[in-house]
Design a protein around this nucleic acid. Structure first.
Ligand code: MN
Ligand code: MN
Ligand code: MN
Ligand code: MN
Lengths: 150, 150
DNA sequence: CAGCAGATGTAGCCGAGGCTACATTTCTCG
DNA sequence: CGAGAAATGTAGCCTCGGCTACATCTGCTG
């Protein structure tokens, strides 16, 4: 390690920074999908309220997501997902749900689980996700649906 | 004025952004502590190698951490932790170790666990951390040290 | 159907954290 | 001792994602 190039350890930090680069896209398409499902349409103001940022921040981010062909919008019009956006939203939601259910399964209280899952989800790789699913399946086996609450 | 109608959901995203603001400090003081323990001192080039960034990035970040009274350094000299920095490093390492051990305990392979833990750790709140520790204690109970491997 | 309120867009600021290119300092070693 | 290499620092550029202030558009409602 002494005075060498990029250490083996560095790949972890590079991966984490990479996760963060995709995080905004994932959270936004997920939010767009939710808003369309819940309110029929997704407006800039809705996203601003959900994400807890100003409408200006939303506008700039949406512009980039349109560049990336994840959303479609026109001036003063609602925001919709492209097929690519839909697919990303579905993947993001699936992973989000598993992480959330997993935290609940190990006993984390509802609200804390929701809060921590929002950040953790973006760092959960395929292997970890698979282990969470296996764990959840085990819990379901041991405790049949009838006896579970929530 | 713009963000008056912040939804209840927004607190999760605000919390996640907050986690990210403390992330750099946590990872850097942890790395400084590790390097001092392993090599006797921590130089800019070591941090650059470990974090996988250029030395310029390290210099700027270290300057900010010094502002925050977490590290101490002088031009062309090694970097050390202040008492505050030591405490933060200890907390960060403790949480990091638990998250890593927890992932291993649910069956995530070594390298994947190390990679995912590096990002996940910063989003693990006290409640979640406590649940992970409880889970680990349970595993240790059920499978005594001698029979555990991997 | 006109005006106004609210939604959306634009301009321009900020800090964090990436980078390259070049300047300066330290330190090793012949 | 005194190069020259390696380490460190500086200048200046970039993107991302925050923000406020102000401009413009849309859609209601009186
Ligand atoms: Mn998220
Ligand atoms: Mn993160
Ligand atoms: Mn760490
Ligand atoms: Mn980390």
């Amino acid at each position: 390690m002494t005075g060498r190039k990029r250490s083996r350890v560095a790949v972890r930090f590079v991966k984490t920074r990479d996760d963060h680069r995709s995080e905004t896209a994932e959270d936004y398409v997920e939010a767009v999908a939710d808003l369309v499902r819940l309110h029929g349409e997704c407006r800039v103001r809705d996203l601003a309220a959900v994400m807890g940022v100003s409408h200006v921040t939303v506008i700039r981010i949406i512009a980039r997501l349109q560049e990336a062909a994840l959303v479609e919008t026109a001036p003063y019009r609602p925001i919709t997902l492209t097929p690519r956006g839909e697919r990303l939203a579905a993947r993001a939601r699936h992973r989000h749900e598993i992480v959330l259910a997993f935290l609940a399964a190990i006993g984390v209280p509802e609200e804390a689980a929701r809060r921590d899952a929002e950040g953790m989800e973006h760092h959960v790789g395929d292997r970890t996700l698979a282990c969470m699913e296996t764990f959840l399946a085990g819990v379901r086996d041991r405790v049949p649906a009838k006896e579970r609450d929530v």
